[in-house]
Structures are given as structure tokens and as C-alpha cells.
Design a protein around this nucleic acid. Sequence first.
DNA 1: AATCTATATCGTAATATTGCAATATAAAAA
DNA 2: TTTTTATATTGCAATATTACGATATAGATT
Lengths: 110, 110
Amino acid sequence: MGATKSDFFTDNQNELAILTKALGHPARIAIIEYLLKVNACICGDIVNELPLSQPTVSQHLKELKNAGLIKGSIEGNAICYCINESGFEKIKVFFQHIETHLEKRNNECC
Amino acid sequence: MGATKSDFFTDNQNELAILTKALGHPARIAIIEYLLKVNACICGDIVNELPLSQPTVSQHLKELKNAGLIKGSIEGNAICYCINESGFEKIKVFFQHIETHLEKRNNECC
DNA sequence: AATCTATATCGTAATATTGCAATATAAAAA
DNA sequence: TTTTTATATTGCAATATTACGATATAGATT
């Protein structure tokens, strides 16, 4: 027990959960917001920006990258990070789906 | 160690993290999708729909409710659950913010 | 009142996440 | 080549999440 029963859910449900879970931490929201502001930066910039140690920031970056929300490219001895649009595109589709449903039914809730 | 340093982030960052974190599990994505489909239902319906026990479903519903993504109203001895639009509205604003930024900068990434 | 139905809560085990010091890796600069 | 700079990885402790059996709660039904 304790492990998520991913096998019993659809690929789409698991994929969406991975994306939203990756956003489910204030540090990672802050990283995304920072990347939106500066467009691209290196890990050290984020370490200076956030109240977290370098290993912790590196770990959060790894999670965002694994989820497909950011991408990093080697730039000399540093790594340049930026938003990965395709990850956000998938979430966008999900929320558009929600929007459509909510607009149709006029909040005729229980 | 181990606890999230919420105090060091903005209210908005923490709020967004709570909302996205609540969506960060395939069972909870499945619950939201089911609620979109049927508009409103009781806990037992979701238990029949998902491969999870009643206590586990009840716990997931509680998390979605605490995050502000669903709401429940007492209906006899059952509880009727449905989508809470205001929660999704907040996430929508965040993603619109992202959209705007990504459109401006023409993916001139590193 | 006794029973049924529907949910919530408690307790607990398994697992995952968060955070950081210490250390490893690897390219750049001296 | 030694040192500096930038990032990743390892190891570990604290905490949180996931899941469910057992049980509690509370309204409906008989």
C-alpha cells in the first residue's frame, strides 16, 4: 500500500496527473513564473531567486523537466533552462475541455 | 526538513500549488472527469467507477474539496458532489498568464 | 427502535516527497 | 594543470501521501 495505482487509470489521466503534480509545489510554480519573466536562465539564477539550496533547486528543475514542463540545454559549463511549451499545451487542452463542459451545463449543481 | 517551505513563497504561488497539487493524482483527475460527465453524483457512484475503496475515494474527495475544486451538499443521507467553478477559475487565470507570455516571446529559447 | 444505506474518520503500513550537506562531474578560466 | 564555476547526484532525516480495514456517524427505511 501507499503506491499510486497508476495501472488502473488511463494514459491520459496519468499524464495529466504527472503534469499537474509537477506544478503542485510553490517552488516549482515560482520557477515557472520566473522563467516566464526572464524567458531563459541558468540554475544559479533560480538559486539566487528562491530561498532554497542549490541541490533542492536542482531537484525541482529535474522534476519539471521530467514532467515535460521545462527543457534545458547545455551552454558552456552551465545549463540554460526555459519553458517547454508542449507540456503546457497538454494541460491547456484539459482545461479547455473543462471550460466547454462547464459552459454547457449552466452550473445547475446539487 | 521534509516540510514544504510555504512561508517563503507568495500567497498566489501557494494557492496555485494547492490547486495543481490536488489535481496531481490520476484518481482525482478521474473524479473531475467523471463529475464533468455526469454533472453531479454521490460518493458511492465514484466508488463504483474507480478501482479504489470507499475510504480512499472519500479521502480524495476531501482533498479536492479542501483545495476548492469540488463542492458537496447534503442530500438526505448521501452527499452530492459537483465541480466548484471558482477553483478552476483561479487555475485558468494562471494558464492564461502563461499563454500571454509564451505568445509574446516567440519561443526564442536557449 | 432496529436496520439499512451512505460517508467520514481512525489507525496503520507502504511509499513518496522535501530539503540539504557532502560530494561528484564537467566545462571554463587562470 | 590547477582552480574556479555551474550543476547533478548521493545519502539521509523529516514529513507527506496513498491506500484500506475497521469503525463511527447520521439520515432513511422498516
